[in-house]
């Protein structure tokens, strides 16, 4: 079984802010692109294979 990943609560809070700060009531709101998702993850220091969101080539 995979071990998974561990985040500190500080990392988790940074990720929550990066992920959910946009106003979903805004007509122009849309889901994040892959690049934007990677950027949001990176704000919490989350990089590497576990956090890879790119579809397989």
């Amino acid at each position: 079984m995979e071990q998974g990943a561990i985040l500190t609560l500080d990392q988790q809070w940074k990720l929550a802010q990066a992920w959910y700060s946009a106003d979903r009531r805004d007509p122009l709101w849309r889901r994040k692109t892959v690049d934007e998702t990677e950027a949001a993850l990176a704000t919490a220091g989350l990089t590497g294979p576990f956090w890879n969101v790119r579809p397989p080539a």
Partner: peptide
């Protein structure tokens, strides 16, 4: 109160 951790079992994809 930044005590504790969050665990993710599955990779993001």
């Amino acid at each position: 109160s930044p005590h504790g951790v969050a665990h993710y079992a599955l990779p993001a994809r």
